[in-house]
């Protein structure tokens, strides 16, 4: 019993450690003071500033566009990779899909920077960011889709084959409807990862194009204003919405991830 109480105290301390800093960011986004030091009074001022910050809005637009395009492509490629990894024993493909997920992001970032400039002679910008985001998202989608397939009864596919389904018919009428929740969850994951990514975008963005995380980074580095708190709060709200959506579409996948 004494041990149970001790465990609870330690766990509560960890939960506090996780939530207090973020709660402070949210609270200060409504604080009527330039300094993030103490509570002065309630205001919407920082959200108004945010609404009129053209650079921030442009960066948010870029982020949204990049996330939409890269998550769509990554979902298609990742779903294929997940099916291929589950159905055929492809060691090389599995290695290529899983390694980008596991390695430090900076390595993918700098190697893509080298590749884009030195080999493709590509001007860094939206296209290079989208390509980079697809590269790191494929693995996450594939893992979720493969997990979904692994939990399924093989005999369903055998039955479809015995009934004379062609490979396409089997995919269209059996496999795809069954893995759809995994595909949706993977797509939402890819979207969130893309919107959130800082490190790989930092190396592949070049000078002309900014995304929301890049813009937040330069704000933090140059001058911290409570406007950062406001945009952070809005972003947290967005991620929360994405999680609720993912939980709705694919509750089992979300649990499997945990």
């Amino acid at each position: 019993m004494r041990r149970g109480r001790w465990l609870w105290a330690a766990a509560l301390a960890v939960y506090a450690f996780l939530y207090v800093p973020l709660a402070i960011v949210v609270a200060y986004s409504f604080n009527d003071s330039r300094l993030n030091a103490e509570w002065v009074g309630f205001t919407w001022h920082w959200y108004e500033v945010l609404l009129h910050d053209e650079a921030m809005l442009a960066a948010a637009g870029n982020s949204l566009l990049i996330a939409l395009v890269s998550s769509l492509v990554a979902t298609a490629l990742g779903t294929m990779a997940g099916i291929a990894m589950h159905r055929y024993n492809l060691k090389l493909l599995t290695f290529m899909v899983l390694t980008p997920v596991a390695m430090p992001e900076i390595l993918l970032g700098v190697s893509l920077l080298l590749f884009f400039i030195q080999v493709l002679n590509l001007t860094l910008g939206l296209l290079s960011i989208v390509l980079a985001h697809i590269t790191f998202s494929i693995g996450f989608v594939a893992i979720i889709v493969r997990a979904r397939l692994a939990g399924m009864d093989e005999s369903i596919f055998e039955a479809a084959r015995d009934l004379g389904a062609s490979p396409w018919e089997m995919f269209r009428y059996v496999t795809f409807p069954l893995i759809l929740p995994g595909v949706v969850a993977g797509g939402l994951m890819a979207f969130t990862l893309s919107i959130d990514d800082f490190v790989i975008t930092f190396f592949t963005a070049g000078v002309g194009v900014s995304t929301l995380p890049l813009h937040i980074y330069s704000m933090i580095k140059i001058a911290v204003t409570p406007e950062v708190n406001a945009v952070s709060t809005l972003l947290m709200l967005l991620t929360l919405t994405m999680i609720v959506l993912a939980a709705k579409f694919a509750p089992d996948v979300l649990k499997g991830k945990a």
Binding site: P21, L22, I24, V25, Y28, N36, T192, D196, F198, P213, I216, Y217, I220, V224, V228, S232, L235, M236, T239, L240, M242, I243
Partner: peptide, 13 residues
């Protein structure tokens, strides 16, 4: 799930 930079920034405050 909240942005990585925000979690780092929180500690700046």
């Amino acid at each position: 799930a909240s942005n990585f930079l925000i979690r780092v920034y929180a500690w700046m405050i």
